Simulated assay, not measured.
Amino acid sequence: MTVRAHFFASSAENPDVRAQITGVVTADRLGGTFGAAVAARSAKSVTQSAIAGYLKAWTEEDASTSVGAYQGPVKVCVGEHDPFLTEQVSRDHIMAIYPGADFESLSGAGHYPPLETPPHTAAVFNAFFGSQTI
């Protein structure tokens, strides 16, 4: 396991690591209090095994074959300041699975748009879902 992988894996049991990761994926724009709050919320609401499972799914599994057959409406959003799930990564990987998806870069947000820019994120999704007929 690489040092980076070990660091991320340790976040399942260490809220301080989760807080550090939150800082990284928000480009450290929101300060340590934001990272600590996100870590505290996750410690209260998500089990360690769930976090470990999420990490494994995000880093080791390929869900594209199971989700690619979906034909309904898709909205792909990426925070403009997310240093990992960037616009280019999203276009190269997610839009390849859902070529007809509606894509939007969310201004002012990093990796957690609903927490970082809640009114803007809600407006984007309300507009999208309000325009859909399923």
Rank of each mutant, 00 (worst) to 15 (best):
M95H: 04
T59V: 12
A127K: 00
A50D: 14
G53Q: 11
F84E: 08
V38L: 14
D92S: 00
S131P: 04
G130D: 03
F7S: 09
A57F: 03
Y112D: 15
T133M: 02
G130T: 02
L55H: 15
I51H: 12
H120R: 15
A50E: 09
H93N: 12
V25P: 03
F103K: 01
D102K: 09
E116S: 01
S10C: 10
G110D: 04
G108W: 06
S107M: 02
V17Q: 05
E60H: 08
V124I: 13
P113G: 09
F128K: 08
A5Y: 11
G68L: 05
F7C: 08
A127I: 01
C77M: 11
S66P: 00
A39R: 08
A122P: 03
A43F: 02
G32H: 00
P15N: 05
Y98P: 00
A5C: 08
F128G: 06
P119G: 07
L106V: 15
I94E: 01
A127H: 01
R29C: 05
F7M: 12
D16P: 00
G110S: 06
Y54M: 14
D102E: 10
I51P: 11
G130C: 05
S66F: 10
T133W: 02
A122H: 05
L30P: 07
L30W: 14
F7N: 08
Y98C: 01
I21V: 13
G35A: 09
V25W: 02
A69M: 09
V78A: 11
V74Y: 02
F125T: 02
V17W: 05
G130A: 05
V67L: 09
A52W: 03
A9Y: 03
T121W: 12
A101S: 10
F103I: 00
S45P: 05
S107C: 00
G108H: 07
A52T: 04
V25Y: 04
T86K: 01
T117D: 04
N14G: 06
D16S: 08
T65I: 07
G108S: 09
K75T: 02
V67Q: 03
S11R: 04
